Computed example of a mutant assay.
Amino acid sequence: MQVDFYHLTRMPLERALPQVAEKVVANGARLLIVAAEEAQRLALDRLLWSYTPASFLPHARLGEGDDQRQPVLIAETLDAANGARHVALVDGEWRDDALDFDRVFHFFAEDQIAPARAAWKALAERPGVARRYWKQNESGRWEQAA
């Protein structure tokens, strides 16, 4: 399984997450987006409907639609009612249960570096876990740093 750490320095989550979600869905996979705070889940719900004028990303919040049919599902916990094998942890909080998925996208901001480093180090000891660390360069493009 693969864990991708995304250090948000130049691009906010509101721009980075839709890009990742679009790629997951375009590859025929499903995504679970996890955020502990209700306000963040509501904001992400609105964002995925309107982040570009020409398109939207079909999705729902857990329990508010036919969860099983959703390519992208937003939830408070790691309840992949849509059958997702990919999960995006968008609130900076690492959850060990995410290792039950095939791929994890762990987004964190500057003020969340210490817990992200702790998660990175802890995962080094886990067999079968491939870790990648992505940071943004001066032009805002993602570069693999580790």
Rank of each mutant, 00 (worst) to 15 (best):
R15Q: 13
Q68N: 09
F105Y: 15
A60E: 12
F101R: 01
R103P: 07
G128W: 13
R10W: 07
Y51P: 00
W142R: 11
L73R: 01
V34W: 00
K23N: 01
G63I: 08
A116N: 03
R30D: 03
A80P: 00
D97C: 11
L31C: 06
D66S: 05
E76K: 15
L42M: 11
Y133G: 04
E22T: 05
V3N: 00
A122S: 12
D91L: 07
S139P: 02
A114R: 11
F56P: 00
L32F: 02
L57T: 11
T52F: 07
F101C: 02
A36D: 12
V34F: 03
D4C: 05
R132A: 15
A98V: 13
Q40N: 03
K121T: 13
L73I: 05
L99E: 03
W134N: 10
E138R: 11
A39N: 09
A88P: 03
A116W: 08
N27A: 09
D111K: 15
L99H: 03
R41S: 02
E38S: 12
W49Q: 03
H86A: 07
L123G: 01
E125H: 13
R41C: 06
Y6D: 09
R103G: 10
V3F: 00
V72W: 02
A54F: 06
E22K: 05
A124H: 08
D96L: 12
V20K: 00
W120M: 07
E22R: 05
S50M: 06
K23R: 05
L47P: 01
I74N: 00
V34Q: 01
A26T: 01
R15L: 10
V72T: 04
Q136K: 12
Y51A: 03
V72A: 04
R46N: 10
R131Y: 06
A145I: 14
D67G: 09
Y51K: 02
H59M: 09
H106M: 15
R30E: 03
A81S: 15
Q68I: 13
A54K: 14
E64R: 06
L13F: 01
H7V: 04
A124Y: 07
D111L: 15
W120R: 11
H59W: 05
Q112M: 14
R46G: 10
R132F: 14
L99Q: 06
Q2C: 04
E125L: 15
V3D: 01
R103T: 14
G83I: 10
R10C: 11
A145P: 04
Q136F: 08
F101L: 02
D96Q: 11
A114V: 15
R141S: 12
R126V: 14
Q2W: 09
A75I: 09
G63E: 01
A35V: 08
A21P: 00
A124C: 03
A109H: 15
F101E: 00
M11N: 10
E125M: 10
R132Q: 15
L48C: 04
F5D: 04
Q40V: 13
P12D: 14
A21R: 04
A84I: 10
L123H: 00
F107C: 10
Q40K: 05
D91G: 02
V87P: 02
W120E: 08
Q144I: 12
G128K: 07
E64M: 12
